[in-house]
Each structure stands twice: as C-alpha cells, then as structure tokens.
Computed example of a mutant assay.
Amino acid sequence: MESIEISAKSEEEAVDLALAELGLSRSEVEVVVVKKGRGGLFGLGSEEVRVRVTPLGLFSSEDVDVGGMAKEVLENLLSLAEISASVNLGAKGSGDEAVIPLDIEGEDLGILIGRRGETLSSLQYLVNLIVSRRLKSRVGVVVDVEGYRQRRYESLRLLARRLADQVRSTGRSLTLEPMTAGERRIIHLELRDDPYVTTQSIGEGEARKVAILSKSNSRENLP
C-alpha cells in the first residue's frame, strides 16, 4: 500500500477522503500537508489544501532510503513554516550509532537556531520523531544550519580545555553557562580522560549546566 495525495477545501476533508480510499483509520497513517490552502473572496482565487497520507508500517529501515525520507520530512516542515531554504543530505556514519546528517542552507536562518540552539534542537526532535514513527524504529538524524552545530561544538571543546587548564592551575572549580543536553555532553566527553579535572552536571531544567572540578578536591570546591 503506497502513499496517496488528496486535495480538498480543508485539511480535515482531505484526510477523511484519503482514509476512505485507503480503508484505514487516522491512527494508522502519517499525514503531511503538502500545500496549504488559501481562501478567496466569494470563492474566487481560492486554493485547496493538499495532503500526503502514508500508512504506518509501510517503511522499514532495510528497504527504504532513510536519509532521503528524513530530508523530505525536514523540507516539508520548512515549507509549512514558510521558510525558504535548501536541505543537504550528508554521508551517513558507520557503526551502531550511525547518524544521518542534514544541513539547512539559506538566508537569514538564525530563526531556526534560536537561543542557545534550542529551536534547532526542537526541529531535530520533530524530524527524528516523524521518521521513527514511519519506520517504527529509532533513527538518528542530526539537523544543522549551515554548519552551526559543528562550529558550536568545536568552540565548546576549546572552551572546555581552556577552563580545565584554569581549574588545574588554581584548584578552584568553574561553572559554565546553562546548556542543552547535547552541549553538556560535548564538555563531558572532551574532559572525560583528563587526569586532573572531572565534570558534573548541576542545576535543573533549562538552568542545568556543567561544573569543572579539580580531581584533588572535587567535593570541597563544587559551587
């Protein structure tokens, strides 16, 4: 059973028509709005909504281009947000934790990054959620905006090394600014094998941050 696209006056009507044709319920399909409708004065110049309806369980990670699927999902999300940009699919990594890299390119894309990369993280979460539901298995998609993550992570690694040197020299702990879970992980991994310092996440929620402590007196100097 393949995906179908249906046009109608409203999204609800288009979905109902697609479900009737497929013989499925709403919980058994994935719905993507391909084209938003537009109302017109007295019906003049109006455009119908067009949706793509895909039965869940249609895909499997063994016989489908997961990278291509993730790219399409991200492009649809950008289109719905009326953001003009292109999506580039990078080479998938290898191993059990292989990820699928997607990089967004365009003009004035700061809105997709957000404060401390939070908007970008939310967008990445949505892409992973949609693709995982289609495949009924977990996938690893990394969404970036013109190399922002790579630059950010590299700057965090350099910052971690510089602050670790300060802690080693002074013996006093230092605390970084609040970070996302992914950014905190970069700090922890960078200093994991350092013989002189250790790291610890402190705080709750959006205020959670990383403290860098001297191994010689890590209990005494935690802020």
Rank of each mutant, 00 (worst) to 15 (best):
E11T: 00
E12Y: 06
E13I: 12
A18D: 09
L24A: 08
L24N: 04
R26E: 12
V32A: 15
V33A: 08
G43I: 08
G45T: 00
R50M: 15
V51K: 11
P55G: 13
G57C: 03
G57E: 04
V64A: 15
A70F: 12
K71M: 09
L74K: 04
L77Q: 06
S79K: 10
L80D: 12
E82A: 14
L89A: 07
K92L: 10
G93E: 05
S94G: 04
V99Q: 12
E105G: 06
E105D: 12
I111Q: 01
L120D: 02
L126Y: 01
N128A: 12
V131D: 08
V131C: 05
R134H: 10
L135H: 11
G140F: 04
G140Y: 07
V143C: 10
V145W: 01
Y148V: 05
R149A: 07
R152K: 15
E154L: 12
R161F: 02
V167H: 05
S169M: 13
S169W: 09
L174N: 05
P178L: 10
A181N: 14
I187S: 02
H188P: 09
L189K: 03
E190C: 00
L191I: 14
Q200T: 12
E204T: 09
R208K: 14
R208S: 01
I212Q: 03
I212N: 11
L213V: 12
S214G: 15
S214H: 14
K215P: 06
N217A: 09
E220V: 14
E220T: 12
L222M: 14
